[in-house]
Each structure stands twice: as C-alpha cells, then as structure tokens.
Computed example of a mutant assay.
Amino acid sequence: MPDNPLLAPIARLLHAHPEGLSEYALMKQLEFDGLHLDQDADASPELLLFRKHFLIMNALYRLRPVLAEEGFEISISALHIQLHPLDSFHHSTETAIIPDDQPLRDYYLDWSEFEKSSSDYVRALLDGFWQRYMSSDQRGEALAVLGLQERASTEQIRIAYRRLAARHHPDRGGDADQFRRVREAYELLMV
C-alpha cells in the first residue's frame, strides 16, 4: 500500500484538538498547514473532493492501530473525529452508540478504491447515493399516503392499499386524485 502523506499531520492535528473536529475542519486545517491535496488539475471538483476524503479516511483507519499502541482510540465519523484514551473510551457509554465500521474500514484501507477513482466513478457513486436517498424519501412519502409506519410489512401494505383503494375509487364516488396517489404509493412500495 502506498504511503499516505496525511498520517503524521492527521495524528498531530488529532492530538492538538482533544475536543475533536469534523472531517471538513480537518481537511481545511490540513490545507491551511500547506498540504495541497488537489494535485490533479484535470480532475473534476467531485473527484478532487472524493480523493481528499479518501486520503483522510484511509489515514484515520491506518492510524487506529498505531494510536492504540500509544493508548488512544479514534472515533471516526464525517461529523466528528476524536481521540479518546483507551481506558475511558472502552468504559464510556459512547462505545454503545459507535457502530461496527468494518465495511467502511475495509473500503478505505483498500488502496485500489483510490486508484480506480475517476470522474465517472465518482459521478456513479454520487448518482447511486442520490437515487438511494430519493427512493428512501419517496418510500417515506408512499408509506404516509397509505397511513403506514416505516417498518410496515408487505402484507400490511397490501391491506392498507386495498382499504384505501376501495374508499377512494372513482367508480364508488371517491376522489380520483387520491385514488391515483394511493395506487402510485402502492406500486412504489411493491417494487
């Protein structure tokens, strides 16, 4: 694995900010300290940001075992990165809310993910994210139309659809627009 130039600067910044900092603040501090992470002038802004993010996350996950030998654990999220003394970290209530991040760790430690990054690759990642985001948003709206909670089963969706479709069917004097919304919600949820 190639040497990540951010290992030492990030370790220094984490020790200098015991209160922790966000990934954005970390990125800005690295740039302020003179580390230019956007070396490729031909890369799109999205690709440059992806590469900066990847380098930071790769460095954080590579620093975990090094800092553990020094008696520290790193909690890692985009919104808050912080060093904790190992004793207080493992005995605090925070450990109960920190999810297992093995899939993320594996991704960011796989240098081939960085090497294969291109503007098209990053665009596809972003498109996939927005499609998942929009579909989850649409799913919530569809569930609301049917009067259901987030964890509704397929059978509950069918029952709610049949009940509302019967109530709003235009042939039975119901509202055609509401019937259409109920049908569209059902179709979206059953995909």
Rank of each mutant, 00 (worst) to 15 (best):
S88Q: 08
D127Y: 08
F129A: 08
L55T: 03
A144H: 08
I10E: 03
S22I: 04
S119E: 13
V145T: 11
Y24W: 12
P103E: 09
S118T: 15
S153E: 00
Q156L: 04
L26C: 12
I74V: 11
L49F: 10
H169P: 01
I74K: 03
G71A: 11
I56A: 02
E46Y: 03
A160T: 06
A41L: 12
E19A: 15
Y161Q: 04
S135K: 13
I157C: 01
R139A: 05
G147Y: 01
L188D: 02
L83F: 04
E69H: 09
D33R: 13
D40L: 01
L146C: 02
R163Y: 00
F89A: 15
W111V: 15
R181C: 02
L13A: 13
I159N: 01
G140S: 15
H53M: 07
K28P: 00
Y24L: 12
G128T: 12
M57P: 00
V182C: 07
P45E: 11
L13Q: 10
I157Q: 01
M1G: 14
T95R: 15
D87S: 13
S118W: 03
Y108P: 03
A78P: 00
R51T: 10
L164A: 08
A8E: 13
R64G: 06
I10Y: 02
A185S: 14
D175K: 06
A144D: 14
A160D: 03
S75F: 07
D33C: 04
K52E: 10
S135E: 15
Q178S: 08
S112T: 14
A142F: 04
F179I: 05
D100T: 02
R181S: 10
Y24F: 10
Y24E: 13
F54N: 09
G140P: 02
Q102D: 08
D137G: 04
L188E: 06
R180V: 10
L30K: 08
E141L: 12
S44M: 02
D137A: 14
T154K: 12
E46V: 01
L189H: 07
L13I: 07
L48R: 15
Y186S: 10
L189T: 08
I76Y: 03
D110Q: 14
E70T: 07
R181T: 05
A165P: 00
F114K: 02
A160C: 09
H91I: 01
R123E: 13
D87M: 05
L26K: 04
L6I: 01
S22A: 08
